[in-house]
Write a protein that binds this DNA or RNA. Structure first.
Lengths: 137, 137
DNA sequence: CTGTGTGCAAAACGTTTGCATGCCT
DNA sequence: AGGCATGCAAACGTTTTGCACACAG
């Protein structure tokens, strides 16, 4: 995701309005590597903007996603997580506390077997590592 | 997942009852590589056992999962999929029709960077490839 | 006969939508 | 002033739960 300043320019250039709610969401997401859910974003913003609604959070996340500024990540069924880091990367999830950390390097390009390449044209892949984090060990 | 015959023995050995409903679910899952959702399992069984309920499907899937006979797989938030193939493997998902196919081979062991190994003890990983299948291309 | 399994209905959960009002530009 | 954004409440799709009845062992 771009920096807040750039994001404001981007929104204005697309005739999207800058509201205090949206600004709050931008700030929560900027540089956020915790992979927050809609609920945790909502809870965080409510501390500075107590009247914001879930609807606004969801709608703004939708706008940001459609602009390619954030990604939805699927770690567990039943809840969506959002990632402002749009550079391709992978994740490791603690099986105890569900903390999600980024995995950015050390991964060579994967080659799929011909059996698969006969039936699919792959475009990208996500790896989810599971394990136990230091705190939980 | 074990074969139905073995599954029956396993259930009996744990004092779990064999009912026609459970048997129907076993049969739908046996050798099933389509990664069905609870709903598609339910629809399939209803053709031979029209009075079965969603509740029973979910509860039986829960029992099978707790016995380690099936795995829940997370492909999209909002719906759970079940996989009777409990041997570690990966998946490729068609972005158009959402078909899910297994990826069993051609993948070397992945090494994580030290930056991650300092903070986590990894136990396993799942790769989700995304692409377009032949039919949709 | 006993207790686990079933199935209905309702609740729970996260997310989405319709609509009237608000406010950014 | 105009139109997009907000926020309430209700709808939604999926999964879970409480409870009375049924049936496998």
């Amino acid at each position: 995701m771009k920096k807040v300043e750039e994001l404001i320019k981007l929104f204005k250039s697309k005739d999207l309005k800058i509201t205090p709610q949206r600004l709050g969401i931008f700030k929560v997401l900027e540089g956020n590597a915790t992979h927050p859910s809609a609920e945790s974003i909502y809870n965080e913003i409510r501390q500075v903007y107590p009247t914001i609604s879930f609807t606004t959070v969801y709608k703004t996340l939708e706008v940001l996603e459609s602009l390619g500024e954030i990604l939805k990540i699927t770690i567990d069924a039943g809840r969506k997580y959002f990632d402002p880091n749009t550079i391709p990367h992978h994740h490791i999830i603690c099986s105890q506390c569900n903390m999600i950390a980024d995995v950015n390097e050390g991964l060579e390009e994967l080659k799929l077997p011909n059996e698969i390449l006969d039936k699919f044209t792959p475009s990208r892949y996500d790896i989810s590592f599971y394990g136990t984090c230091k705190q939980c060990a």
